[in-house]
Amino acid sequence: MNQTLDIQRLGWLIKRIWVENRKLFGMTYVVMVLLCIAAYYLGRDAGGAIVDRDIRFGSLIVGMFGLGVLFANYIFRDFSHTPSTMSYLLLPASHLEKFLSGLFYVFIVYPIVIISTHSLIDYAAFEIIKFSYPDTPMERTIISYSELFETYFTVQDTMFFNGVTILTNFWTFTIMGTLFFQRLSLIKTGFLGFSSIAIIALLEYLMFHYIIGDLNNNISFNTEKDSFLTVYITLGIVLIRFILPLFWLLIAYLKLKEKEV
């Protein structure tokens, strides 16, 4: 018997989360779909011929960001409440399996469900409007999903992919926080997260201000500093987009392994 990773046991753990939460998941899903439809309905413009782009995009963002963070916290809350932590830590499966079963829901099930549901609603809205108003100026899709993979790995700055960056960081950070805090984990994690963002922003501002100088006046004229800046930004993006989420996950896993109640 493998003591670190056994696929069968992982399967049992995934089933556990599903059986214990399916009713709640189902109800929450229905409410989310209804809210999304309501948002589309209320977000029509120009006599109903077009759904506001901000509504189309925003509903996806809210689903992924806001609710995603809640979901990540919910999935890992078994580790932030003493009686459930005890029973879950002592369930005969390895730490890694327990960790992966949670990640499976946060990073695989959740995005698939949210993106496919949202696309479906968005597509249906488009078809319905197209049927009633054949010459609607509404675009068929808001996001080109086919470009998702490609763009994400080319370190390009587009609004959507910055979003994905923030998203993975928010999720992984939430998971870490949930594992660290025993009670009110979401509030404490939020506090920790936002205060660290504030501190980093302040440090960054001070760094640019005192080391590189005033951004607006100097950058475009000084090639040396310009290349330094490009390297800095590229490194920063790689760091934030890939390394940081993995770092949060690593810390979360180590915490899970050492967790004591």
Partner: peptide
């Protein structure tokens, strides 16, 4: 907390 130990314990 290895699985082989946890299988032998109920708390």
């Amino acid at each position: 907390r290895q699985p082989k130990f946890l299988q032998e314990l109920f708390f």
